[in-house]
């Protein structure tokens, strides 16, 4: 469904991506792991059009989207949740969701209900400013905001960064639930073991290139991956 081939580019200086390729099929969860500076977040931003690409192709449902403005990518069913600063802090929870649906002219109530059902703490605090939420709730809101366009693909950049273990488990459970509803998920994650446990497939990146590609379970079982990228072998 979503295919990136030979991506080369960065933020204007030296190339961070040196020919990364990646594929996300419908209803899949795919996790990108790798050391700092490997270009994990950059790949995701590139797919969403936030990185200047010198080379490479990105297709979505068979159509080339590499030159499309961000707004158009959102309209076609891609939604992206940045790692940090991913909610509008001075807007209320409900207003954040409204903004998530900005590209839609009408938003059925059921779309809000779905997000509030998925994330009950948000329903309780719908009139509160997003800046007053806890870290975990903020992350829920950021994901909920992205779900407002009913995307086919959800791009998550380290959704559990800085969260308590409990909040982390909650977010992972939500991600699984969202995926079960049919949303394909491409996710960058620091907590590689837990994320690979959840993933159908995984990519290991290093220095802007693909290193390993396999099913989540196979990557977890791979000794080399475990030693180099999962923090100690076992």
């Amino acid at each position: 469904m979503l295919v990136a081939e030979g991506l080369v580019g960065g933020y204007g200086g030296a190339d961070i991506l040196k020919g990364v390729s990646m594929r996300l099929d419908a209803r899949e969860i795919v996790v990108i792991i790798g050391p700092n500076g490997a270009g994990k977040s950059t790949v995701m931003k590139a797919v969403f059009g936030l990185v200047a690409l010198r080379e490479g192709r990105i297709t979505f449902d068979g159509q080339d989207i590499a030159r499309l403005p961000t707004e158009q990518r959102v309209r076609r069913g891609l939604a992206y949740v940045p790692q940090e600063r991913n909610v509008f802090v001075s807007l209320s929870v409900h207003e954040n969701l409204e903004m998530g649906a900005f590209v839609r002219s009408t938003v059925p109530r059921s779309v809000y209900d779905r997000v509030y059902t998925l994330f009950p703490p948000l329903a309780e605090k719908r009139r509160q400013a997003a800046g007053e939420l806890s870290g975990g709730q903020r992350q829920m809101l950021a994901v909920g905001r992205a779900l407002m366009v009913e995307p086919k693909v959800l791009l998550l950049d380290e959704p559990t960064a800085g969260l308590s273990p409990r909040a982390m488990d909650e977010i992972f459970a939500c991600i699984r639930a969202i995926n079960r509803e049919g949303v394909a998920i491409l996710m960058v994650e620091q907590n590689a073991k837990q994320a690979l446990g959840l993933a159908h497939r995984g990519y290991v990146l290093a220095t802007g290139e693909n290193r390993f590609t396999d099913t989540g379970a196979a990557l977890l079982a791979n000794r080399e991956v475990a030693e180099s990228f999962l923090g100690g072998g076992h």
């Binding site: 961000t70 707004e71 959102v74 600063r85 509008f88 807007l91 207003e95 409204e98 903004m99 900005f102």
Partner: peptide
């Protein structure tokens, strides 16, 4: 909606862009 989008963009223009706000 436009007024709220103005507040949103004033909060964080980058986030407004990735949210798909025109």
């Amino acid at each position: 909606k436009m007024g709220k989008a103005m507040r949103a963009m004033s909060d964080d223009a980058d986030l407004a862009r990735v949210t798909g706000i025109g």
